[in-house]
């Protein structure tokens, strides 16, 4: 069933602040095998004029996707069948890197809803601000609700975004 176009432009309330910890950044950098000292060593970060260690560019997805998942994907009024949802596109636009000590809130907005070959394509914008209300990064996430099971879809977007969404 086609998603309701009137949801385009809908914004959800800002999330409760997520506090970025040095050790969480370290854990993430190690998980992607990235040994750049700017992620783990405050001295190395300061040498590049950062007040504390910074996070790898894609770190913030865990925060923005949680916001999108809890607010948009599960919005009962929107009625997205999240068992069919896969991750299509992802883009980040940065004002500055996320860094340890940040308290980040996410404001999610539905940018577009399209129907392509029977698939529903939903674009969500997650704007991330720090505790002073300053913009940090915007995440643009495109989710595809497949019309058919995975084996029948073209190769595009066989990536499902979150555990509970695939069950």
């Amino acid at each position: 069933m086609a998603l309701d176009q009137s949801f385009v432009g809908r914004s959800y309330p800002p999330t409760a602040p997520y506090e970025v910890g040095r050790e969480k950044i370290r854990e993430f950098a190690e998980a992607i095998g990235d040994t750049n000292p700017v992620y783990v060593d405050p001295e190395a970060a300061r040498a590049l004029d950062h007040p504390d260690v910074i996070a790898p560019p894609t770190f913030v997805f865990a925060i923005t996707f949680k916001a999108a998942g809890e607010q948009v994907i599960k919005d009962p009024q929107l009625g997205l069948d999240f068992s069919r949802v896969v991750h299509g596109d992802q883009k980040f636009v940065y004002t500055r890197p996320v860094r340890a000590g940040d308290r980040l809130t996410v404001t999610s907005t539905i940018d577009s809803i399209k129907s392509l070959a029977g698939n529903e394509v939903l674009s969500v914008r997650g704007e991330v601000h720090d505790e002073n209300g300053e913009h940090v990064v915007t995440a643009h996430t495109t989710l595809v609700a497949r019309a058919t099971p995975a084996q029948d879809t073209p190769a595009a977007a066989q990536e499902a975004p979150a555990a509970e969404d695939a069950r």
Partner: peptide, 16 residues
């Protein structure tokens, strides 16, 4: 060197 130099980064997931 400095990841802060990245001002925009986007991809499309085409194949797993």
């Amino acid at each position: 060197g400095d990841p802060a130099a990245v001002v925009e980064y986007g991809v499309r997931f085409t194949k797993p």
